[in-house]
């Protein structure tokens, strides 16, 4: 600033510019300071605790390979997330496909149906599924009154219940990137393929599907990552019997006070997610995917 002020005749003008940039930096500052002090600092603290408590070293991380209950939790988490992602992408693809090809009027209604659940509290959604799927829930009592079953079906407090609740939660997150990539597909390429005699299915498989691939990859990454650290829905619909990693971490901290173990798992989760994103950064436009593009 002093250097700028000392450059002679144009100093007033230049100082004015430096001043202006300072003003813009001052506008960025409150958010930057709040985020640094109250978001990033505690986040780094988690990584730090994982290598210092109860004693310095990587002992906590060794548990990843030796503890049977941790391995079980990780395998369960990966299995549930993989199934959830696969089902979500297939269903989301159908919705996005129909959306792209719908009339503007139908499109508005479909969009409303996809977006409204996003705005409704995740607890309300989980509660609605409990009402439907519980032992004495609406589905079981209806089926029993209709004489179709005698014993209630086990629809909840197991992996089935978790997957239903998670798929229901995740579909909108899959539809949006899929829709965005399908909208960019030039409809003339499809007409051309059809005009040249390609069957409907052949055209879809060889022309439409490949062009929607970026959307598929993006949606898959998004849904898989959101699923990995998901707490509320799996905790409610799993009923404490099927533990995914987020609930396992909260148990370690809130009930067992095992900070070393809890922060180690939390750090592992974050590192895994960022490695996954780094690996896919070349294929997927991450900023656009997370809404900031």
């Amino acid at each position: 600033m002093t250097a700028v002020a000392a450059t002679g005749a144009h100093s007033g003008r230049r100082f004015f510019f430096a001043n202006e940039r300072t003003a813009y930096w001052l506008m960025v500052a409150p958010a930057a300071v709040l985020m640094a002090a109250f978001y990033f600092y505690p986040l780094v603290e988690v990584l730090w605790i994982s290598v210092t408590e109860p004693k310095p070293g990587l002992d906590n991380y060794a548990l990843l390979f030796t503890s049977a209950s941790i391995r079980r939790t990780i395998v369960t988490t990966l299995r549930i997330c993989t199934i959830t992602t696969a089902v979500t992408i297939v269903l989301g693809y159908v919705v996005a496909y129909v959306l792209v090809h719908a009339s503007p009027r139908a499109q508005r209604w479909l969009f409303l149906g996809v977006l409204v659940p996003l705005w409704i509290s995740v607890l309300v959604r989980a509660f609605a599924w409990v009402t439907l799927l519980a032992r004495e829930g609406l589905i079981n009592t209806t089926l029993r009154d209709a004489g179709i079953i005698e014993q209630p079906l086990a629809l909840i407090w197991n992996e089935f219940g978790i997957v239903i609740g998670m798929v229901h939660y995740m579909i909108p997150y899959a539809v949006l990137p899929l829709y965005a990539s399908m909208r960019d597909i030039d409809a003339r390429t499809v007409s051309a393929a059809r005009g040249l005699g390609g069957s409907r299915f052949y055209t879809f498989r060889r022309v439409f599907l490949p062009q929607s691939l970026p959307g598929i990859i993006g949606a898959t990454v998004l849904v898989f990552i959101f699923s990995l650290g998901f707490f509320v829905t799996p905790a409610i619909l799993g009923g404490g019997k099927t533990l995914m990693i987020a609930e396992y971490i909260s148990l370690q901290i809130l009930d067992l006070l095992r900070w070393g173990l809890g922060t180690m798992l939390a750090s592992t989760l974050v590192i895994f997610i960022f490695v996954l994103l780094a690996a896919l950064a070349k294929v997927v436009d991450l900023k656009r995917l997370f809404g900031a593009g």
Binding site: V46, I225, A246, I249, W259, A266, V270, L286, K287, A292
Partner: peptide, 18 residues
């Protein structure tokens, strides 16, 4: 974008400590 990507449970641990 970090807070959107990092699971809340992870941040919750550090937040509690702070």
């Amino acid at each position: 974008l970090v807070p959107i990507i990092v699971p809340t449970i992870v941040y919750a641990l550090g937040l509690y400590r702070l």
